[in-house]
Design a protein around this nucleic acid. Structure first.
Lengths: 174, 174
DNA sequence: GGAAGTCTCGCGGTTTTCGGACATCCAGGC
DNA sequence: GCCTGGATGTCCGAAAACCGCGAGACTTCC
């Protein structure tokens, strides 16, 4: 529909303790998407939505991004804080994702707190929805949002991974 | 919804024999919109659709554009041929508008011919619809398209103006 | 007959509308 | 405690309505 400039994105793979991840970067070196390999269909669907007409070619991501990802999974849970990301999406979604990056490793928020943080305290379900459409898992830490009563509620990559990630960051979870 | 970069557009006014026209140009000097002053609401609506988030400030259009418009209304009906334009819109709409510019002053086409020219001979009504959404009147000569039986059928600026423009270009119309 | 008007219907892209779905939260009843 | 139901904001997909048409069938007048 709307016109968009063609663009080439690079698709790389990185091994982690919870399975291989797919890592999509653009020409500027910014991360465009990150997801677990067994959810590739979901990732390409999100990419199609947010970056239509973009070509995806296998290749190697910038070294600093690769090493940051490996460092995170190796135990340096703050290694991803400085990684540049770029997303499409609506204004609302982008504000949610921006708010996510402000949650430090080792902490969690409830969906209600997340909604309040972006100035729409009543848009709780909408915030949860936007959370689930986050195209850049782990780096944009959507896994740090849990139910108000402490339940994990959901995770696009599987609840097991959400639990693993939180424990890896030092959070005590059931 | 989609993100778009903020942009500043310039709004100028030019007097013509059929009323004042509004002339919107961008920083690069390309025409973004042109409409008659009494249809300003329509123009701003189209602009909003095709260039969301753009700011519109009163100002003076580039001299070469102004003189081209004045020359056209003064009798040099080909004066607008070289004027640069830029539009948003869907692929279909853009191809229709491009086809319009290929119709020389003094000639007309039917909606069917227009549809055929863009390779969709059956998309007749769709072509008519796209024609009516042309944001750059006169320069993109949507007024040169008339019904297959010679009736003028419609014009966003009023049928009287369509008739005047065609006669001004030397077409015999009822 | 035939020329000109009127009506009907199919056409294709775009816009608008509407109905769900959803990784929530809270209150209230049992 | 556990379950139920309601309020709530956003987004997506499907469906319907909208049109600056055109061709063909029918009527109406000469």
């Amino acid at each position: 529909m709307r016109n968009a400039q063609p663009e080439t994105l690079t698709l790389d793979r990185v091994a982690t303790p919870v399975g291989e991840v797919l890592l999509v970067t653009d020409a500027a070196g910014a991360v465009r998407a990150l997801d677990f390999v067994d959810y590739e269909a979901r990732m390409t669907r999100l990419l199609d939505r947010h970056a239509p007409k973009a070509a995806l070619v296998e290749g190697r991501a910038p070294e600093d991004v690769r090493t940051a990802v490996e460092a995170y999974f190796g135990g340096d849970v703050r290694a991803l804080d400085g990684v540049a990301v770029k997303t499409g999406g609506t204004d609302f979604q982008r504000s949610v994702w921006a708010a996510l990056r402000a949650i430090p490793a080792g902490e969690t928020r409830s969906y209600g707190q997340l909604a309040a943080a972006i100035g729409s305290p009543k848009a709780v379900r909408a915030a949860g929805l936007a959370n689930g459409q986050n195209p850049i898992a782990v780096i944009v830490p959507c896994h740090r949002v849990i139910g108000a009563n402490g339940t994990l509620t959901g995770y696009a990559g599987g609840l097991e991974r959400k639990r693993w990630l939180l424990r890896h960051e030092g959070v005590a979870v059931a």
